[in-house]
Design a protein around this nucleic acid. Structure first.
Lengths: 340, 340
DNA sequence: TTGTAGGCGTTATCAC
DNA sequence: GTGATAACGCCTACAA
């Protein structure tokens, strides 16, 4: 592998001059510049990035932590982030935590060992206290998951309000025995959503029977199980708030196999407006987040922090979401629209 | 940031000894070892990975090239690859080519600049001739996409045979005017599938009207367009082979909106057994690839090549696929099973 | 068992 | 304009 030294020797010049050419610096005569470029080509020279990293203390790499790529929401996030990062000349390392505390910490270690210049966290498996020590090793930005009380930049929607709106929608569609299904417990998002959900019930004088709370539902399979759980309830459930379109899809799939009518027997609401929510029959009412913008903003902030030490202010960016009303919850409008 | 030097000084020992402790090497007294560990903790010392990389000429990082993460097939691949790679202690850089030649080459450049120890390519945007020069910079393994004629390790299924089987299935279900939809043109996979498709038609004495070949269909939206194209045909099409479940889903979605009956009016076959293929109504007949195993094997081979120069033999691993027959093509068995 | 010293490939500093 | 030289932080002969 040719080094800068080899190029210098072949061109009959010094390493310094070669380095200047590589980095497009001034003070090199056109003539020598050409000679050097020719030498580089002849040797197939390419600058060694490890050496550059060591010298510059920069890696041009960021880590994106997420539970798993095949969760469509996170897939979209990392897709958009990688795209934006590559515009800035940054590489992206995928770090799938699978919601494991240890894996999350292992990946944060990349920041300490200077393998990456910064980290994006889209989910949190650990308590914030466990994360905090890593912040001094380099910039960290939260996207999706958030912690209002802490000193860190965040990009997200208002999950509390979103869940509130979704629940109100269910209630307005005539549901009065509503189940609540959530993904991982103990995260701030989950917490916020639940608050919104309960608030809505409360505002409409409905009670929430504790046995209708289901935890740990993340994908289609889980959704199917959620349905059989609902099916077993002595007192009929007529609506469910799920934290994910996949879970909602699983419920609808299982429900239709069991002969339940959606939304007449059960109104179902998802989250994230994944493709699946549109394709299911009936199409799933859901919350749309501006994923691309959130991803881009996150990378922007992170790169800003990496490039300038002064970019120190921790900011919170709250994006708008949209409640997309579709067939899976359309219980009342059927009649109403029939009269128009 | 503390360095090995700082630790050595604090512990009153040499860099060498500290290095030995870091790397778990023998010949250090328990006593000094403890002293060093204590010093490391006190300083919050963490070895600098850039320096290690430069010294060891190893990055413990691999690049995975793919069109885009949100294509579920590739999402699954990279998910499984990252998992396996992390077992081996390797980081994974996501490299989304978006099927662009230049991006693909840019990412291959990571191999030249020694930013990664090896590369996995799951798709090919460039001609092989353009890729070949990069092979001398480090190991490359193909997964999914392949080039039988070339000297490189590959992991894949037999797409020619798979397409053949799928097409025969359509024919056996009574289709005789079958359309063919493919993703990116000019790749070997596309080529192979088309061969299989044509062979099947030929074996059953059917002709393929050239106007029924559709190129560049990749996702649900494209599928919807494919359907409107089919709808416009003067002579009714009664079956379609698509290279993707997403396209198939898009077709079915659009078809049912237009009042077509699937599979009676049109039999649709997908590819990859994505979740969506099971959830659609009707469920989509598809080809299942052993994605996890293929991904794991790919990483195994790549890491093997990285670790040992002798791991030089280029091998071709051909995995078995499975044709999953579902409702979207069930035109004949309806009657048959009715009689049982 | 421990330490010295050189070098991995680059770039920044400073002198010429 | 150009070049010698010293770092960046680590590892590893080799010497002691």
């Amino acid at each position: 592998m040719a080094t800068i030294e080899d190029v210098a020797r072949l061109a009959g010049l010094s390493r310094t001059t070669v380095s200047r050419v590589i980095n497009d610096q001034p003070y090199v005569t056109e003539e020598k510049k050409e000679k050097i470029i020719e030498a580089m080509e002849q040797l197939g020279y390419v600058p060694n990035s490890s050496a550059r990293r060591l010298r510059s203390q920069r890696t041009e790499t960021i880590a994106v932590l997420l539970p798993r790529v095949t969760n469509p929401f996170f897939g979209h996030l990392i897709e958009a982030m990688e795209l934006k990062a590559s515009e800035y000349g940054y590489q992206v390392i995928v770090c799938q935590t699978h919601d494991k505390k240890q894996k999350e910490l292992d990946y944060l270690q990349l920041l300490k060992t200077k393998q990456v210049d910064g980290v994006v966290m889209t989910s949190l498996a650990n308590q914030w206290k466990a994360i905090e020590p890593y912040l001094e090793s380099g910039p960290v930005v939260l996207c999706n998951e958030y912690m209002e009380t802490e000193q860190v930049s965040m990009v997200h929607i208002d999950h509390r309000q979103a869940a509130y709106d979704a629940t109100v929608h269910l209630i307005e569609q005539g549901c009065n025995r509503i189940a609540y299904s959530t993904g991982s417990q103990e995260t701030h998002i989950t917490d916020q959503r639940k608050q919104g959900f309960l608030q809505a019930l409360n505002d409409y004088k409905l009670v929430f029977p504790k046995e209708l709370e289901i935890n740990g539902a993340l994908d289609v399979k889980d959704g199917q199980q959620v349905f059989s759980f609902l099916q077993q309830q002595a007192q009929r459930v007529d609506g469910i708030f799920t934290g994910s379109d996949e879970v909602a899809a699983g419920i609808i799939y299982a429900a239709s196999e069991s002969g339940w009518k959606i939304p007449e027997d059960l109104a179902v609401i998802g989250f994230d407006n994944q493709m699946i929510s549109l394709l299911m029959a009936p199409a799933i009412t859901t919350i749309q987040q501006p994923v691309d913008e959130m991803a881009k903003k996150t990378i922007e902030i992170l790169v800003g922090k990496i490039k300038s030490e002064e970019y120190r202010l921790e900011k919170q960016y709250v994006y708008n979401y949209e409640l997309l009303k579709r067939k899976s919850t359309e219980r009342l409008n059927i009649k109403e629209s029939a009269s128009t």
